[in-house]
Computed example of a mutant assay.
Amino acid sequence: MFERFTDEARQAVKLAQANARRLDHHLIGTEHLLLGLLDQPQAVSTEILGRHGLDHGRAYRAVADLTPRAPKDALDAEALESIGIDLSAIRDRVEAAFGPGALDRPPQRDRRGNLVSGRHVPFSPRAKKTLELSLREALALKHGYIGDGHILLGMLREGQGLGSRVLADAGIDAEAVRREVVLRLGTRRKAG
């Protein structure tokens, strides 16, 4: 399925993963897909959702409010800092080497039992369903590609994830957005 994704759709998925890491989440959910869509200034979904009053900043704040971060253990940090260990400097160096949130992700093992970096963040079942529905939306529109607009249509069709809740809480009329996306995609015939 990913071979059918346009550059914008691939970028949305990469940005979804980056947003999940930034929020210290261990799964990519529909809310992260929404953030990934809104993180691209030139994307169809960003343009349409922006006209309806939702931008990345507003959506990010809503997701952060709906999914609070796990509290960090401040006592350990204070104890280490009291003996001269600067945790923020260590975190910066580790993240520079292994990516944002590297210390926050649990270590994982590959098939042979070796530890891997934990850089991959898996999709939640609802996010997987959204991506599957994006393919169905593309096929229904007789498009040979999956664009960022198709992902938004898949999210609207899935309708149960946190991404849909953020849209609803923002007062966005899902049917109106759906009609606009379909109309816009009908005018954009883009190959892979």
Rank of each mutant, 00 (worst) to 15 (best):
P41T: 13
S45E: 04
E175F: 09
S88G: 10
D104C: 08
E81W: 08
F98G: 08
G186Y: 06
G147N: 02
V63G: 00
R91A: 12
G101M: 03
D86V: 08
G149F: 03
D148V: 08
R10P: 07
A97I: 09
A97S: 11
L131S: 01
I48L: 09
L115M: 11
L27H: 11
R21W: 05
R126E: 07
L15W: 05
T6V: 09
L115H: 07
R51M: 10
L103H: 09
R10I: 08
D169R: 12
A70T: 13
K129H: 12
R165Y: 04
Q17I: 09
E180C: 08
L131Y: 05
H25I: 03
P107G: 10
L115N: 07
E31V: 02
R61L: 09
G118E: 03
L135E: 14
K128M: 01
L133F: 10
E158K: 06
E175M: 10
V116Y: 07
K128I: 01
M1P: 11
L135R: 15
K128T: 02
A97Q: 11
Q17T: 13
S82M: 12
R105Q: 10
I146F: 02
I48T: 10
R126T: 07
F5Q: 01
R111I: 15
Q40F: 04
P107K: 07
T30S: 12
R10K: 11
D169Y: 06
R136W: 12
L38Y: 01
G147D: 05
A168V: 15
G163F: 01
Q11F: 08
G99N: 06
H26A: 11
H150D: 07
A170H: 02
V182T: 13
K129W: 06
L33W: 04
V63D: 00
V13K: 00
F98T: 10
K128W: 01
I151K: 00
L34S: 00
R178M: 08
S124K: 00
A16N: 02
G192R: 15
A170K: 00
L152R: 03
V44R: 08
D7Y: 13
G36Q: 01
G84V: 07
D169E: 15
H56R: 14
